[in-house]
Design a protein around this nucleic acid. Structure first.
Lengths: 353, 353
DNA sequence: TTGTACGCGTTATCAC
DNA sequence: GTGATAACGCGTACAA
């Protein structure tokens, strides 16, 4: 222990000694939490420069403070897939806003428990935001809660008294469907998001709905069916333009059974459907009306404006961030229910016949 | 101090006492770093359950170990913009791969130094990956380096001996330009990525190039100009399909000055240009050749295959991750220069006339 | 296999 | 305005 092995990195104590002050004084110089005589301050800073001291070690500081300044964001599935989704990125954007007052960093994590237990359990985080929480997360979540950390869930349910940020998916979907009905459409087809983890592309049956696990999909479907109880539906395997294209082809290839309008559960799917229509020589909205959901500004639509329900994606993130901030302040977190706003675009019109 | 104030959270010492073992034994039970008699182990676990102990505090553990298991990724600009770019997401994907052996979390950070100094300086991270590093980052970077943490830069220059992952942007762009020249094109127009933080859309002048700050843009432009020294260029305000559409219109609207080929600095821009051509009734590649850069599998091209230079985006991330892992192991980090591969597609052909 | 003791680098508290 | 001191909660040589 007394052997001079590696030339150890300077600590704040070394700096204090070099400057001829107490460690507590040096600490205050760096944290700025109290007034220090300018002369003393200079001495400390000079000593730090001389010893190559780069400021307080964040690890030690976070142990002492009980705060690391990091908030974990748990996404389901591959990170890449999550960031491929514009709604998720918008939400992350809002989250950084809501977290701004904490000036906290965002630690990205996946839902899956890794080889050596969930990383969630061993990461020095101050709070956790779950996005679309699936069952698997529960276990690792217990550890986090057991530690007394704030947890907020966006569009999911983590049970107990965990604050949730939710959306009026069903009502908003009904609004869009109503718009189509009022335009005069009677033959509507639906394109849904995945129903469960399996993400099977195919016709949506009553059985499949009964065993569905993705709330968003089920709720939006219910809203659509409020207005069009018998509309056929096909589930996509993800919220992607290419999926919309594939499902769009399935729905449109047979001219005999072709619907006059297609309502997709996401804007990306809707863009794909529009592309499928173009492929088949159908014009939108003259020959086919297409509506989406989300209100993202989809890249690649050109001059068309998608009829959709604009969800407050950024707000969702911001709200979650604000709740985290509140809970970290010791105040109780509350659940919030946000609403979507219908937007009539240029992709829907009255049917031809 | 002896007063029983708040019912303090249980620590590993409490668990050990409750189980009638030494703290070290309890510690080992949780870390699994050594063998413990099954009976003892059970007693410890039972005690932990009883006291509501949720496992070792990550903050304390990281101080003790000197590792937090977190790697910071610094992106320039808004997080949202970063994740809108397919190249960035692909890179992040590779990064998680390269970092896999560390099973480290990824802490997202922005380039901008906040109000209270850069968050980079106060985050408990083990290493830092910079993506497209601008000058502003330098200051906070010094703190990190002063602390002796590994730093790796992807497509940027952080000075000194910091390992860099770079791309042969200029040579690769020249390859694409050469292909167009060999096809017989003489009238080429360029669409560039943003030149600087201002992201102004407009004609690229010598002055603008001189004050440009985005290396990628400048390098690719230089490569293009090696072959077509006088080709006119317009800068886009971002790598987006709709931006390509706008700039494409600017370049194509006047039939008199219409080029026979357009080379865009990103595939997304190229897709937009193709869409602009379609709008004007021009066929690709018969009436207009279009080439891009990146080699992402762009959505919405139909049966066309874009002529482009395929950059190893995932590899860039993976390489950075691997260097970080190496440096954390104590080995020296090395700079890597990756190369793009030219891919001839169906969007380029000999000019008509 | 289990227990003891020390140090990781800070910062909050309180007295001066 | 400055200084001494005690935690913060854990991991790990080392001895038993």
């Amino acid at each position: 222990m007394t052997s001079p092995e590696t030339p150890r990195r300077a600590t704040i104590a070394d700096v204090a000694r070099e400057a001829g002050v107490a460690t507590s004084t040096a600490s205050v110089v760096f944290s700025g939490k109290a007034n220090v005589a300018p002369a003393t301050r200079e001495r400390v800073l000079a000593a730090a420069a001389e010893l190559g001291y780069a400021g307080p070690d964040p690890r030690a500081a976070s142990l002492r403070r009980g705060r690391s300044g990091i908030v974990a964001v748990v996404l389901e599935g591959h990170l890449r897939a999550a960031f491929l989704d514009p709604v998720t990125t918008a939400m992350m954007d809002g989250l950084t806003d809501g977290l701004a007052e904490l000036s906290a960093g965002i630690l990205l994590m996946r839902d899956e428990p890794g080889d050596d237990g969930s990383p969630l359990a061993s990461a020095p985080v101050d709070a956790v935001v779950l996005i679309g929480c699936s069952g698997r997360t529960r276990a690792s979540l217990d550890v986090v809660r057991g530690r007394g950390l704030p947890v907020v869930v966006i569009e999911g349910d983590a049970g107990d008294g965990i604050p949730r940020i939710t959306l009026d998916n069903q009502a908003a979907a009904a609004d869009v469907a109503r718009h189509l009905r009022e335009l005069g459409h009677r033959d509507l087809a639906l394109v849904t998001l995945p129903l469960d983890q399996d993400r099977v592309r195919g016709t949506v049956t009553a059985e499949r709905i009964a065993t569905a696990t993705v709330d968003v999909t089920v709720d939006r479907l219910a809203g659509m069916r409020e207005i069009f109880p018998d509309a056929p539906a096909i589930s996509a395997s993800g919220s992607l333009i290419d999926e919309g294209l594939l499902v769009g082809r399935m729905l449109l290839e047979d001219p005999a059974s072709r619907p006059t309008a297609i309502f997709a559960q996401s804007d990306l799917l809707a863009v794909g459907v529009i592309r499928a229509a173009e492929e088949l020589g159908l014009r939108v909205p003259e020959d086919l009306s297409v509506a989406g959901f989300d209100g993202i500004d989809a890249d690649g639509l050109g001059d068309l404006v998608l009829t959709t329900s604009v969800q407050p994606a950024v707000e969702k993130g911001r709200a979650a961030g604000e709740q985290v901030a509140r809970m970290l302040r010791g105040e109780p977190g509350v659940s919030l229910h946000l609403t979507c706003r219908f937007r009539a675009g240029t992709t829907t019109a009255a049917p031809r016949r």
